[in-house]
Amino acid sequence: MNLLHLYDRPAVYLVVAALLLAVGLYGLIRRRTFIGMLIAGELIFSAASLNIMALNHFLAPDPSTGQIFVLFIMGLAAAEVAIALSIIIAVYRNYRSIRSTELSELNG
């Protein structure tokens, strides 16, 4: 296996994207505060974007489709962060805490 031209193989990008997805999942399960879970969610978004870009660059006939798709993902991620942070601030104002274990009023 030739290690030169490593940047011309789709598998390298896909494995990096899989690693980002796995690390994001780990953070999403492990974190106990909402902001930490939000950061892990952003990692999962990045994994999806990288996967789409790699497959589009190497396998699709139209290279601009994937770029537009990833641009839309970035817009959605920005909207998601704005909404999530405002919810976090509203929760902090009511409970004086954003730890997910302390918001257990609906816990049966």
């Binding site: 789709p10 598998a11 896909l14 494995v15 994207a17 899989a18 690693l19 997805l21 796995a22 690390v23 999942l25 780990y26 399960i29 190497f58 396998l59 699709a60 006939p61």
Partner: peptide, 22 residues
């Protein structure tokens, strides 16, 4: 969970039949 997800996706992407577009 993350190790299982990573192993599955990575093995799929390493062994996939990737064909270049025409």
């Amino acid at each position: 969970v993350s190790a299982v997800v990573f192993a599955t996706v990575a093995s799929l992407s390493l062994h996939g039949p990737w064909a270049a577009p025409a």
